[in-house]
Design a binder for these strands. Structure first.
Length: 257
DNA sequence: ATGGTTGCAGCGCAA
């Protein structure tokens, strides 16, 4: 069994004690991180190597940043989406145990129609093209991360309040759906097709956590070869309730290997 | 509540 998690940790330096505790308690084989918010020279590499993780990372100052932790060797690391010139560190891909695994931090988009929103749609288009290429390899592909998209109203605590707002607007949802239509499986939703309160992010503001005002915006997308091995998927919701925690909870997939 | 909170950088910006 292989346990793989994705988690937007919102600063790996601030969250390091939480991350270390969580790694010790849950012992995932592979972890995809987003929003590390640290340059590569300041990445807390040794703290993770002490816990017997191999680590690959792609960071920048203050914002964004992605990483992959693995108990198994990490090969063929690619930083950034190939053929996409992007100053922002939002994508890292590698091969682990013969599986191609990527950690993605899709732009938030700020507001529908803004420059950042257009950048988000462009990023999703570039991601789509790249995944299309990767799928021609017919291998186990695992794309996990913070997509900043709630795919359906079912994934939102108050669909009316969020109607056509950023994270829920039709163009972004179409981009997400186009990825799924390439033949990828939304692992968490596949396991719990009817569950309504399947959230991964709760805003720090306005008592969102206390009121369970959440959205499902962190996802695992699996190629057919990977989806065939899927045995379980879940949100580690309790992590969101800890002190000094990220506004995202980890999502975990278990694969029979 | 056109608010609210957090992280980083350094007193505004991104989320």
């Amino acid at each position: 069994m292989l346990k793989i998690a994705t988690w937007n940790i919102n600063s790996i330096r601030t969250r390091l004690p939480n991350l270390v505790t969580w790694l010790k308690e849950t012992s995932p084989d592979v972890v995809l991180l987003q929003e590390t918010k640290v340059t590569d020279d300041q990445f807390p590499l040794e703290d993770l190597e002490t816990l017997h993780y191999n680590v690959s990372f792609h960071g920048q100052k203050s914002y964004n940043g992605v990483a992959i932790l693995s108990k198994f060797p990490i090969e063929d690391v690619t930083c950034g989406i190939p053929l996409f010139e992007d100053e922002q560190a939002r994508y890292i891909e590698a091969v682990i145990k013969g599986m191609r695994i990527a950690s993605v931090y899709v732009p938030n988009g700020m507001a529908v129609g803004s420059d950042k929103y257009l950048y988000k749609l462009d990023f999703l288009e570039r991601l789509y093209k790249h995944i299309q290429t990767l799928l021609t390899y017919d291998e186990k592909l695992i794309l996990g991360g913070d997509f900043n998209i709630a795919p359906q109203d079912q994934d939102v605590y108050d669909p009316q309040e969020w109607h056509e707002q950023v994270l829920c607007s039709t163009p972004e949802r179409e981009k997400f759906r186009s990825l799924v239509y390439l033949g990828l499986t939304d692992a968490l939703r596949a396991m719990y097709p009817l569950e309504k309160e399947l959230y991964t992010w709760w805003d720090y503001r306005a008592g969102s956590w206390q009121n369970n005002f959440g959205l499902r915006i962190d996802h695992f997308l699996l190629s057919p070869q990977a989806a065939d091995t899927l045995t379980e998927a879940y949100v580690e919701k309790a992590v969101r309730g800890l002190d000094k925690t990220s506004d995202h909870a980890p999502v975990v997939c278990q694969l029979a290997l």
